[in-house]
């Protein structure tokens, strides 16, 4: 399993797509926001937590269709499905690899982009914490979506259509926590809900994802 994780990480690094593209997308989206809503710093500061959460979510979404598609095409998924380690575990590892290559860089980059959006000082810590707790859920939901659509040619758009409604609760709790943090309120409740959501996703979604993947590989 560790070998699988290392392999996925190495592939993501070598292809250059994982880190670079998601981050660049996040940056561009953040830069575009002031152009679309205007440069008033108070307004930007108010919407900054929500925008950063939305940007992280979309950047996460961007890399999902490559999550399983490449392995599906070259047949390594078939090998994984028949390998001695359970497919559930393999998919959880894939989710972890996706989180390390996409979610984690977003978490690290978010404060820097918060500066661009004039995020209030109290918000930085809670923004990072909420993203750190919430992005694993995004990755695992993404693995499930990717497993559903892996057999479909050009399934990227369909994948977004399926995954985005599933992202709703995570986005609500995550953005709410960041917003309350930025406004100086107590973000404990949404953070707890967010953590519960992430843990639930990590615990249960590998089973759903591997069931879907087995159906696709049959």
């Amino acid at each position: 399993m560790i070998a699988l994780l290392l392999r996925d990480l190495r592939l993501a690094l070598r292809a250059g797509g994982g880190f670079g593209l998601g981050l660049a997308f996040f940056l561009i989206l953040t830069v575009l926001v002031p152009f679309s809503v205007g440069p008033q710093s108070t307004l930007l500061g108010t919407i900054a937590p929500g925008i950063l959460w939305l940007g992280a979510l979309l950047a996460c979404l961007l890399s999902l269709d490559r999550l399983l598609a490449l392995d599906f095409e070259d047949g390594s998924l078939d090998v994984l499905a028949t390998a001695p380690i359970p497919l559930e575990g393999a998919l959880a590892v894939k989710g972890l690899a996706h989180w390390i290559t996409t979610g984690l860089p977003l978490v690290v980059a978010a404060p820097a982009l918060g500066v661009l959006l004039n995020l209030p000082g109290a918000g930085y810590g809670w923004l990072v914490v909420s993203l750190l707790l919430g992005t694993p859920a995004l990755s695992m939901i993404g693995v499930f979506g990717a497993a559903l659509t892996v057999g479909i040619k050009r399934g990227g758009l369909l994948l977004s259509l399926l995954v985005l409604p599933l992202y709703v609760p995570t986005l609500i709790f995550g953005a709410e926590a960041a917003r309350r943090g930025a406004a100086g309120l107590d973000p404990a409740t949404p953070l707890l809900m967010l953590t519960g959501l992430s843990l639930g996703c990590i615990a249960l979604l590998p089973f759903a994802a591997s069931a879907a993947l087995r159906m696709n590989l049959r």
Binding site: L148, V168, P169, I172, E176, T189, A208, A211, M215
Partner: peptide, 20 residues
């Protein structure tokens, strides 16, 4: 499978939206 997982998330969304 999507319907099953979607149902869980639909219920979650409902509560999340109330909270939000």
């Amino acid at each position: 499978v999507l319907c099953l997982v979607g149902s869980v998330f639909a219920v979650l969304s409902r509560y999340a939206v109330h909270f939000w």
